[in-house]
Design a binder for these strands. Structure first.
Lengths: 218, 218
DNA sequence: ATTATTTTTTAGATAACCCTAAACTTTCGC
DNA sequence: GCGAAAGTTTAGGGTTATCTAAAAAATAAT
């Protein structure tokens, strides 16, 4: 069996790798994400390498092995299913569920997860629009783009977020931006890359680059 | 905050004290229940005493303080609500849920527990007939007796179990004994204290003393 | 009541995970 | 290409929760 801590490292390595276009993940990046120090990460990487969960050469960064990725996707699947439960069944807001799901994802029972999945009617996406890995261990591809990459004149639908902090999510709600919401790209500032989008026939909204690059659309 | 381990000790102390008619709980009994050694228990008791969660005098056994009991009841409340969830919503059998609930009970969010309670329609009893402690920290009294204490000729209803092992629960199911089932006490053996009960007009069932003393009735 | 047995506690170790400080690689800037 | 800066690993410790073995206290037995 694997400890909570090991599971968290695997999940974090997966997320960082995905975010960084498949590159190898650095010790410092892991230290920052796990809120620990680089020295502690080094220790743990040695342990994970011994268990064949990561490919690790000193000073060279890490990459998950197939087995490591399988485990990471399992944890992420649990996390996202619990988030759906918390929002759909218990009525929590999408900005409130992350830390609870961080704990629930470590409950060790495959049977529980599969029954939860059925109870929730096999959802494909979590409340933030993230795809839920399959039981088989596949991460569904979405093909979403960042709102910051959309061209003037395009009309797109908001499908997900890259940033999951409560602050960011609450900011979206206050701006009137929700998942499924359709927006038209009116213009992109060449100065600060902020964008102006059209919501409904009458309403326009200014979105900073920092927000736009964290919004996924299709 | 308190560690998983501390929470487990508090819960165990509460359960053992309740089972033993309110007596003080012994180090060895705790060691057996927590599947550790007496030496480890001694260490932990010192720590819990430092935190004012138990009354502890060396060699004299332990008793929960008010704060310790409050915490123990909180954990038990969580445990029993999660058991209801697993059985009622996910369709698990009452013999399958204990170990999952042992993990779920440590999820740290009062809000989560209260929303779960509402989602389950404020159940009063868990799938084993155990009363669910209130938010206020009260353990509801049930007034149940053991089947082994019922007199010949009495007619009673099975309301709960004292033993929660999967083996025992499965044995009950195989015997046709379920919660809510009405039985009449036909006779009690003076030799081995086993009992013969009437289930429905035509069926009688022999129950060993070991089973009868673990069945709660009203 | 004095010894024998059981129970409990202390002493000393270990494993997991984290830390700081120091040493060692790699990378960057010129 | 070489020194400085940045990034990473090792060395040496600390904490929590566990263990075994041995000592101490309480209980039981004669």
């Amino acid at each position: 069996m694997h400890s909570f801590t090991e599971e968290n490292y695997l999940k974090t390595i997966y997320s960082l790798a995905a975010r960084q276009d498949g590159d190898e993940v650095s010790t410092n990046a892991l230290a920052e994400m796990t809120a620990t120090k680089a020295a502690s990460v080094s220790d743990m990487l040695k342990k994970l390498a011994d268990k064949q969960l990561i490919h690790y050469k000193k000073y060279q960064g890490v990459r998950l092995t197939d087995e490591g990725e399988r485990l990471a996707l399992k944890i992420i699947r649990r996390h996202r299913l619990w988030e759906v439960f918390l929002v759909e069944k218990l009525g929590f807001g999408w900005d409130e569920v992350h830390s609870m799901a961080e704990e629930l994802e470590h409950i060790r029972s495959d049977e529980l997860v599969e029954r939860l999945d059925a109870f929730l009617n096999n959802p494909q996406f979590d409340p933030h629009g993230d795809p839920i890995p399959t039981v088989a261990g596949e991460m569904p591809a979405t093909g979403y783009r960042k709102l910051s990459d959309v061209m003037t004149g395009e009309r797109v639908r908001i499908m997900g977020v890259l940033e999951h902090s409560a602050e960011f999510l609450q900011h979206l709600v206050r701006s009137g931006l929700t998942l499924g919401c359709e927006v038209g790209m009116n213009q992109i500032s060449s100065f600060d890359r902020s964008v102006e989008v059209q919501i409904g026939p009458e309403t326009t909204l200014f979105i900073s680059y920092d927000v736009a690059r964290n919004l996924l659309v299709s």
